[in-house]
Every structure is written in structure tokens, then in C-alpha cells.
């Protein structure tokens, strides 16, 4: 017996971990290390390992000086905000209404909220596409009934962003409602009673008593939205297959995909992925700092 054993049960824990670690190394660690390697190489997949030359920081310089990259990053950010803000306002309102008005039926409400979330973005994007058709779409038909439109939902530079944001909002508003509902149901009932006794009712009760209690969940849920938003791909890929009019709906993920798998520039796309990762992490750190630094206290 060796003096320092790995564990009291010998190799058993390692054997149980082996499948996970093997898959992790093959499908997470190797591709991740590969992204560091590939970001400094030039060539495409067809040429194989030997055809890839070391090009130093060229890919990063190329990505950094590519106006379309920065344009796509701006689009991604704008879509995230356009989809994220209404989605969380809706979710906060809905969760409060479900919590205070529905009582025992709140389980059903949660079920309805989860339906869009589990539905495939691709399939439902095709439905949205039909509804948003300029000439034959139901949305423009309804708008015409009240004397508005027609709006060119899928081809106008601004409206195509609105359409994609609406689809993202539709898919995730319910999910966030469920998150906020869970947080509300965890609140002590005595808190609301005490507030009522102190004379806080209606909006004042919600603003001064309930909302501060929801703060941790708001930070968590909106951070998740931000992370998801930076990766936006499916929705814009279907609604604006070629990036839309003047590339106004091209997200960075979609541009990455195009660069790697249409243009065959794996190195450039990988360098771009690194820039996107750095931007995402910076954004999230800044966002967390914003929440941490008394902004909330000044608001409430």
C-alpha cells in the first residue's frame, strides 16, 4: 500500500468519473484549447492540419478592423436590449398578477408560461415569418383594421430588429415570469401583511416592499438574458437568413457561422469568437458592478 492514498476507496471514484471526464476532455477541453490554437492559424478545414499556417495576430487584426464585425456586435447588443427590457417588465407584471390574483390556479399559469420556452425557436420563427409577411401577414391585416401600416416587418432595417426582438421576447417572457413567480412564492407572507398594516397598498407596496425583495432574482434572471442575448442565433438566422437589409439583423453568432462555414475562414471566425467572448464577459462584469454599486438604492 502506498503511503499517500488517492482515496479511501481506491480507484472507485475515478472509475465512476471516467466517462464524464473522457467526454469532457474530448468535447469541451479539446475544442476549447483548439480555439486558442486555431485563432492564430489561417486556412480552411478541407486542407487539414498541414494546410494551416501560423499567422500571429493577423486574425485578430482582421476581425478588429472588420466594420461588419462591429456592426454585428452592435446589432447583437441592440437586439438583446430590445428583447430583454420588455421581456422582464412583462414578466415582473405577470408574475405579480399571477401571485396576487390566481391563487391555486398559478400552477396552470406557470404551465402556459413554459410552453413558449420549450418550443423550438426554428419552428416558431417560421410561424412568426408567416404572420409578419408584409402583404399577406395577419399582423398587417389587423393593423390595417385600425388604420395603420402596412409595416415591412422583415425587410425594413429597424422593423426586422423589432420582429426578432418580439420573437425572443415571446419565447422567454414566460420563462422569466416563472422565475419571478418562484421568488415571489418564497417571500414570507408576514412581509406583505406587515406592509399592509403599515398602510402600504397597491403600487407603493409593490415598489417599496416587494421589488427590493425580488432584487437577487432580477439580477440573476437579467444576467441570464444578457448571456443568452450575446449568443443569439436561431431567431435571426430564420427571420433574416442573409442578415437582413444592409445586414441590420446580423448577430455576431450568425456572422461567425457565415465566416467559418460559408466563407471557410476558420481562423478568422475563431478570433472573432474570442472577441465576442471578451465583449460578453466585460458586459456582464460591468452589469454586475452596476447592480452592486447603489444604483438600485438610489432608484428605490
Amino acid at each position: 500500500m502506498t503511503p499517500r492514498r488517492l482515496s479511501p476507496h481506491g480507484v472507485a471514484p475515478y472509475l465512476f468519473l471516467a466517462p464524464f471526464l473522457l467526454l469532457f476532455i474530448l468535447f469541451v477541453a479539446v475544442p476549447f484549447a483548439g480555439s486558442l490554437w486555431l485563432a492564430f492559424r489561417h486556412g480552411d478545414a478541407a486542407t487539414g492540419l498541414a494546410g494551416l499556417d501560423y499567422v500571429g495576430w493577423h486574425n485578430f487584426r482582421f476581425a478588429g478592423s472588420d466594420p461588419l464585425f462591429w456592426h454585428s456586435l452592435g446589432n447583437t447588443l441592440m437586439l438583446t436590449v430590445m428583447a430583454g427590457v420588455p421581456q422582464h417588465l412583462l414578466a415582473l407584471g405577470l408574475s405579480w398578477a399571477i401571485y396576487t390574483r390566481l391563487g391555486r390556479a398559478s400552477g396552470w399559469a406557470g404551465f402556459v408560461c413554459m410552453l413558449p420556452y420549450v418550443t423550438s425557436a426554428i419552428a416558431i420563427a417560421l410561424v412568426f415569418m408567416t404572420l409578419l409577411s408584409t402583404e399577406y401577414g395577419l399582423i398587417n391585416r389587423w393593423l390595417a383594421l385600425v388604420g395603420l401600416g402596412p409595416v415591412d416587418w422583415l425587410h425594413d432595417e429597424l422593423w426586422v430588429k423589432v420582429s426578432i426582438a418580439a420573437l425572443v421576447c415571446w419565447r422567454y417572457a414566460g420563462w422569466n415570469t416563472v422565475l419571478y413567480l418562484t421568488a415571489l412564492q418564497a417571500l414570507p407572507a408576514s412581509l406583505l401583511d406587515a406592509a399592509a398594516i403599515d398602510g402600504a397598498t397597491g403600487w407603493r407596496r409593490y415598489w417599496y416592499v416587494v421589488l427590493p425583495q425580488l432584487r437577487p432574482m432580477i439580477v440573476l434572471a437579467s444576467t441570464l438574458t444578457l448571456i443568452g442575448g450575446c449568443q443569439l442565433f436561431d431567431e435571426s438566422f430564420i427571420l433574416a437568413p442573409d442578415g437582413g437589409t444592409s445586414q441590420s439583423a446580423l448577430t455576431t453568432s450568425a456572422y461567425l457561422y457565415r465566416l467559418a462555414f460559408v466563407n471557410g475562414d476558420l481562423g478568422g471566425a475563431t478570433a472573432m469568437a474570442w472577441l465576442l467572448l471578451v465583449s460578453t464577459v466585460t458586459l456582464i462584469v460591468a452589469y454586475q458592478l452596476l447592480w452592486g454599486r447603489g444604483l438600485w438604492r438610489r432608484m428605490a
Binding site: P31, F32, F233, T252, S253, T270, A273, W274
Partner: peptide, 9 residues
Amino acid sequence: FMTVVPYFF
């Protein structure tokens, strides 16, 4: 998006 390109390779 970080791993999809090197994963393909």
C-alpha cells in the same frame, strides 16, 4: 459559439 468552429475542425 466559442467551441463550435474548432469542434467542427
